[in-house]
Design a protein around this nucleic acid. Structure first.
Lengths: 143, 143
DNA sequence: ATGCATCCTGTAGCCGCTACAGGATCAAGG
DNA sequence: CCTTGATCCTGTAGCGGCTACAGGATGCAT
């Protein structure tokens, strides 16, 4: 059932696909090279021909990137989401693993934020002999 | 009171400096190549010779990296913190700019976290025909 | 026929490392 | 003194996820 069959699945150039999805042309080609996207058909002269279904895939990809999924994770998601259903459990696995990463990153950043904010607040802005910012970075360092 | 003055400024090999600071040897050389660290003296046979003051600098560098400062920012900090005092104001500028970056990143990540968490929670784990994770990534996309 | 837009491939650069190849040098033990 | 093994040196290439060229081939409108 992969066949294009009926229904005018209109064809797109890479430039048009790029416009429609907001993904840079070079990036689309990069995704193809790195097997995130399958290679599309070509015209006689070698130009890429995309189908309207590719808009959806690329939009998905773009959104997943915005959500911080790695290309590796996205390759997996596309494989799972692809050829007729997929195990929602596996998808959930990937997503919740990613969620863990995000939470760890947030927690790290919050620690940094607190420390930096506290320190910057101590700055008088004058050319004082010792600067609180340089101080936290310096020796007394391990906190 | 910056001066080390007295006290046997002992010399170190790159390996020893690496041990003492926890910074990879290759990374130390990389910092030299990219002008984050000044090139040290050399022995007759060409080996790098570090002074104990370099431990402090490299530890500073390491800590600043842990706090997420870019090498560019660190180059600036080292220049400012370097040759006798420095404008604390400029240091504060760099640090508070970095703080802004961190806060923006935290805010982004929190949005992602909420969205992903909500979605993953809806997962039954079965092989349902539609998967909430794939759904948020898909079409209805813009939230 | 001309011009310009768009496309193609291939390669190199960004950051901040890390890893390796291939060689030189050092310190210690036999 | 010689050998071994650790350490050092330089130079280059790779990671992820693009982005930006160069240099050439099409496509389309006038």
């Amino acid at each position: 059932m992969r066949a294009i069959t009926a229904a005018r699945a209109q064809e797109l150039t890479i430039g048009r696909l790029s416009e429609l999805t907001g993904v840079n042309i070079e990036t689309i080609r990069y995704y193809e090279r790195t097997k995130v996207l399958p290679a599309p058909a070509r015209t006689a002269s070698g130009r890429r021909v995309y189908q309207s279904a590719d808009i959806r895939t690329l939009a998905f990809l773009r959104r997943a990137r915005e959500l911080g999924f790695s290309l590796d994770a996205i390759r997996a998601l596309l494989r799972l989401g692809g050829p007729e259903k997929a195990s929602c459990r596996e998808v959930r696995g990937i997503a919740s693993h990613h969620l863990d990463d995000i939470r760890a990153k947030i927690s790290d950043l919050r620690k940094l934020e607190r420390l930096l904010a506290k320190t910057v607040a101590q700055c008088t802005g004058t050319t004082a002999p010792d600067c609180p910012v340089l101080d936290i970075l310096d020796i007394q360092g391990r906190n």
